[in-house]
Amino acid sequence: MQPTLSQKPIESRLFTVGIIGATSNALAAFNRIFSVTHHRTRSYRAVAVPVSDEPNQSIDIYVLCVNHPDVIAQWRGHVTRKSLQQPLIRLAKANTQASPQEYIVSVPLNPSKFLKTLDDYTIKELSFFPEFEIGLDDSRVSGHTLAGIRLLKNGANKLKLNGLNKALVIDDSLPVRKQIEIEFSLLDVNADLAATAEEGIEQLKTQNYDVIFLDVVMPGMDGYTACKRIRLLPHYKNVPIVLLTSKSSSFDRLKGALAGCDTYLVKPINHNDFEDVLKQHFKPKGN
């Protein structure tokens, strides 16, 4: 069994925003805008980037703060020599045409719209999406989370995994089943749902699944027993089984390994950790 992933909600992440060509006054203005994010899950800080500097991996997001054609050309010359890993955000007039490697934010700057662009950017380009956590006591999906899900679903660089086409989710919690179903939908993977181990095992007898997510604590047959039963089925001796639980201990890991599970996930599970578990068993397409 692979090492237990003890999942904790991501508390926060501070993103460094490099402001290209900003004056000291402009930099101070950006940091005043970013100050409202310091209590949030994702927050931002602005640092000055001289136009002559080449891209730096310590900066998460680059914002081009100038409109002078010569300055833009100078910066792009540096980008040509050492490419940015992510697209650039450029402040420009509303009718400015964006290149495939740019986001355009219209000026004069609207602080709330600018922060929304940064939040969208961290989801689509930096794969930071902690708001949706499977198995929280409050399992409702907020409007903000749904907006993030739509961005991930439509993102051009969303994760695709070789050999993963169909999944089975066995969990007695309806919110958890639906949340994991949403996660699989982001990967274009069909997920069937079962509320009990007995129901799930019957589905396994008639369907072929590439991965199984299995809750430990359920009414009737528990996850450990179900895992042993699943391993006896002819087509499921080697199919990855991910056990889901709200607690973790060395005894639980041993029990899961003896039952035949591959990975042990502790709720709450966030989006990034969910994908990391799948990447342990399925190679991303294009790699």
Rank of each mutant, 00 (worst) to 15 (best):
M1S: 12
P3T: 14
Q7Y: 03
T16E: 11
I20M: 12
F30P: 00
R42C: 01
S43I: 01
I59C: 09
Y62H: 13
Y62A: 09
V63E: 11
V66K: 04
N67E: 15
V71E: 12
A73T: 15
V79Y: 00
R81E: 12
S83M: 04
L84M: 12
A92K: 02
A92Q: 10
A94S: 15
P100K: 00
E102N: 05
S106G: 10
V107H: 00
S112G: 00
L118N: 05
D119A: 11
D120L: 04
S127P: 00
F128G: 01
F129P: 02
F129Q: 05
F132A: 12
E133H: 04
I134N: 03
L136F: 02
D138V: 08
S139H: 04
L146H: 10
R150A: 10
L151S: 03
L152C: 01
N154S: 09
N154R: 08
G155I: 00
G163S: 07
G163L: 05
L164E: 02
A167L: 06
D171R: 03
D171C: 03
P175D: 05
D188I: 01
V189N: 02
V189C: 02
N190M: 04
A195K: 10
G200A: 06
Q203L: 12
Y209V: 07
D210R: 05
F213P: 07
P219N: 10
D222T: 01
V242I: 15
S248L: 13
D252E: 15
L254F: 11
L254C: 03
G256E: 02
L258H: 05
G260R: 13
K267L: 12
V277Q: 07
V277K: 01
K285D: 06
G286A: 07
